[in-house]
Amino acid sequence: MATSDEIMEALADFKEQCNGNKRLRRMQRDWTKVLHYAAVDTGDKFTMTVREGEILSNEKGAAGTPDVIIEGESETLCNMFWGDINPTQMYLKGEIKVKGTQEDIMRIDAITAIIWPEV
């Protein structure tokens, strides 16, 4: 189990990795979304705001209208932001649930593919 603060820490690291990656920023420049993350075991929720490929903020709680909702065990979410797991594999095996368009789901996969190509 991961605490809310641990997940926030992982999110902050994820943000740094994304925003610092020029290639990724250019690639994702047409992607403006609000994402909600929900840890099903602890009940914690998080909101990530992305504008033109840049992660503007990560906040605790579910704010605004989400384009994508990602649900999973707190530990799984944490591992995902640390780059320890392949989120799409988890998704296809039903270990994380994603509500949103297939296109957005593939975009999320593309981000992780660029940051952690070996995962």
Binding site: Y91, L92, G94, K97, K99, G100, T101, Q102, I105
Partner: peptide
């Protein structure tokens, strides 16, 4: 019922 099931069923 939803978009996630298509890819999950493919798998």
């Amino acid at each position: 019922t939803n978009e996630s099931i298509g890819p999950r069923m493919s798998y």
